[in-house]
Design a protein around this nucleic acid. Structure first.
Lengths: 220, 220
DNA sequence: ATAAAGCTGTCATAGCATGACACTTGTCGT
DNA sequence: ACGACAAGTGTCATGCTATGACAGCTTTAT
């Protein structure tokens, strides 16, 4: 495989006509899926319906996505890519937890301003689907876990240590991904005080950096 | 095993004969499932095979468990129950993170000594199944998330604050569950230095309590 | 003992996911 | 431009998970 014909120009344009068609089909499937999801919910929508709406066979759907959940996870993948880029852009002398914090806040801010492809509206839609679909929720967490492993590697590299010998990258990455989930949670199940997501991310990280040493309310 | 035949006198025992039969079927299904899982792996084992081994219809299997994954999660449920009990047993004036840390360590220690119903051997088996079955892994994370919500409530109560208004319980609970996952991870993918699980849990919590402020190795 | 309630087995059905094979269409070499 | 080859798709077939409906049997309660 990898015919690597390295046609014409070079890297940025391995574009053929077939590639474009594929890309269009893929996006059409995503669009159709989100349309139907928004309309009838995630579970109530069948793969066949999605495929029919794009006028391809269900079999073809599975050639683009390994599962119905996979369509939704596309979104998370994009978001993660943005996070990774933001993290790489942080000054290299910043402590890792601070770097992750700032990267997270930066991405959220940008989202709030409508930058990036992923708008917060879509994000909310996805989040709501999760609530009503355990299977999807599970896949999402699973995906997050995979990404956490990647973050662990990046953090380890940044710290200049071996992740196999030093558990700190593991824990830091875990704490970070947990922080984001907590922020999402607090944002979605807003307590009537609708803060901005970027603000929540910042605050949650602040708590973690303080060590979470909360006293119990020693009861009588 | 050790089926708690305490029926007779009966504390909270609305136990009839039918109940016992049901319980036996349930345990038989679990046993059969684990046997087959260990033998041929999680995914390669079908519900029908499990049911056949107990000599019930597959339909009946689904009356006991909502899914194949659910059988495995039984184990995690027991473990969580132990954790909750251990947490409740901590002195009420202990800071929450410390209480969770000590509770976790206590449960792991007890497991290592072979107390509780769940032995570490079974734990390892479950963990290995997760690795090879994304679906199961997802469900497990999902289950963990549900339990985290419960922990949030407990922590909030312990701190004497309202979890809807104060985000600290959320974050603390999240950090704790993340700590356990990190410890599991480090234990399973041991770096050749097979520490005890209880020790790992302790260490991971220690890192979190220190705030994770790791400097980056400012590279030239 | 008899009626009510609960559990089970047997269909039946829907949806997800994958494999095999043939057909169409884009792509590349000459 | 033509033909060989590769890639994408449709159709058919299949397996497994999960749920619903109904009938029959066992347990429980009166």
């Amino acid at each position: 495989m990898t015919s690597m014909t390295a046609t014409a120009a070079g890297d940025p344009a391995p574009t053929g006509r077939r590639e474009r068609k594929k890309q269009r089909t893929r996006e059409a499937l995503i669009d159709a899926a989100y349309t139907l999801f928004a309309e009838k919910g995630f579970e109530a929508t069948t793969v066949e319906e999605i495929a029919d709406l794009v006028d391809v066979s269900s079999r073809t759907f599975f050639r683009y996505f390994s599962s119905k959940e996979d369509v939704v996870l596309t979104f998370q993948e994009e978001q993660f890519a943005a996070m990774k880029a933001a993290l790489a852009a942080r000054p290299p002398d910043e402590p890792v937890i601070t770097a992750m914090r700032n990267a997270g806040v930066a991405v959220m801010r940008a989202s709030e301003e409508g930058e990036y492809g992923f708008d917060l509206q879509k994000f909310v839609c996805v989040q709501q689907m999760m609530e009503s679909s355990p299977a999807l929720f599970g896949r999402s967490l699973e995906h997050g876990q995979k990404k956490q492993a990647e973050i662990t590697r990046i953090v380890a590299e940044r710290m200049g240590v071996d992740p196999a010998a030093d558990m700190r990258p593991h824990v830091a990455a875990g704490a970070a991904s947990c922080a984001f989930r907590a922020a999402y949670d607090l944002w979605i199940h807003g307590d009537g005080d609708p803060k901005r997501l970027s603000e929540l991310v910042d605050q949650v990280f602040a708590l973690i950096e303080d060590g979470l040493n909360y006293p119990s309310a020693a009861r009588p």
